[in-house]
């Protein structure tokens, strides 16, 4: 505050903060700041400090298309959430940041929507039955909806997680209930490899995320069209202005 008081207009702020009116509020502000700083430095989950392991991932694209992946989970206390698990699987993923709400997944492989539609309602239209990417937690009894979302819940070793492109309420019916061993078998994971590497296998997906690029001749053609339009346009503007008597 002493430093602040030396800075021009901040003198008034300093006096105001230490005035009788604000003195009651100040401890609360300081406590909040300390708590925020503590939250920023403490590891996200105590469960992450465990031995190295893997987590399974099942992705349902609808229309009987699935991806199965097994991803090593870091054991050094590093933050590793559901979106990290998805990105580490090797699948092309489009996820956007929603600030304090965390991240939203817009597209996995070729299924989903672009950034503009995703920003509006996470790919959903006004119809509640329209699909979006939902995050599921696996278990012995089947799938359950994640209460915190993918970026808000840490991934635990030995568990199976899921993503389903579906609308409506609840867990989609076509989501297969699988144990980690099942996912390992379906993804072709090599548990003897050292170090452990992610494994991924997709079934029933039509098309890939690779964009269709034009040839260099086509780009040259496009450049020629733009250049010709620019030249012709300049001539038209010049002639029209001459006719209208504009200098």
């Amino acid at each position: 505050m002493i430093v602040m008081d030396r800075v021009g207009g901040c003198v008034t702020i300093g006096r105001y903060l230490f005035s009788g009116r604000m003195r009651g509020v100040l401890p609360g502000i300081v406590a909040s700041a300390i708590m925020f700083a503590a939250l920023m430095t403490v590891p996200v989950s105590a469960t992450s400090a465990q031995e190295p392991g893997v987590a399974g991932l099942v992705i349902s694209y609808g229309n009987s298309a699935y991806s199965y992946a097994v991803v090593p989970v870091p054991a050094d206390g590093e933050r590793f959430d559901g979106v990290d698990l998805l990105e580490q699987s090797g699948l092309p993923v489009l996820a956007i940041d929603f600030g304090g709400y965390g991240q939203g997944v817009c597209k996995i492989e070729v299924v989903g929507c672009d950034v503009s539609a995703c920003r509006v309602r996470l790919c959903q239209t006004g119809d509640s039955a329209s699909p979006f990417w939902r995050y599921l937690l696996g278990g012995e009894t089947g799938w359950t909806m994640s209460p915190l979302g993918a970026s808000g819940s840490p991934v635990e070793s030995g568990k199976v997680y899921g993503w389903a492109w579906s609308g409506g309420q609840g867990v989609p019916a076509d989501m297969p209930t699988l144990s980690l061993q099942d996912v390992m078998a379906r993804s072709g994971f090599d548990s003897n490899a050292a170090p452990l590497r992610p494994a991924l296998r997709s079934i029933g997906l039509s098309g890939t995320a690779a964009p269709s690029e034009s040839s260099s001749i086509e780009y040259a053609g496009a450049g020629f069209i733009l250049a010709a339009l620019g030249g012709a346009g300049w001539m038209l503007v010049r002639r029209a202005r001459q006719r209208a008597g504009i200098a």
Partner: peptide, 29 residues
């Protein structure tokens, strides 16, 4: 997203668009 690539060239659209410049041609000729 997720792969950055050059935009696709479509000559149907690129050759159709200059038709919007017809008012300029009328003003000139």
């Amino acid at each position: 997203y997720p792969t950055l690539a050059w935009p696709t060239v479509d000559f149907t659209m690129m050759l159709a668009l200059p038709l919007l410049a017809v008012p300029a041609a009328i003003a000139a000729f």
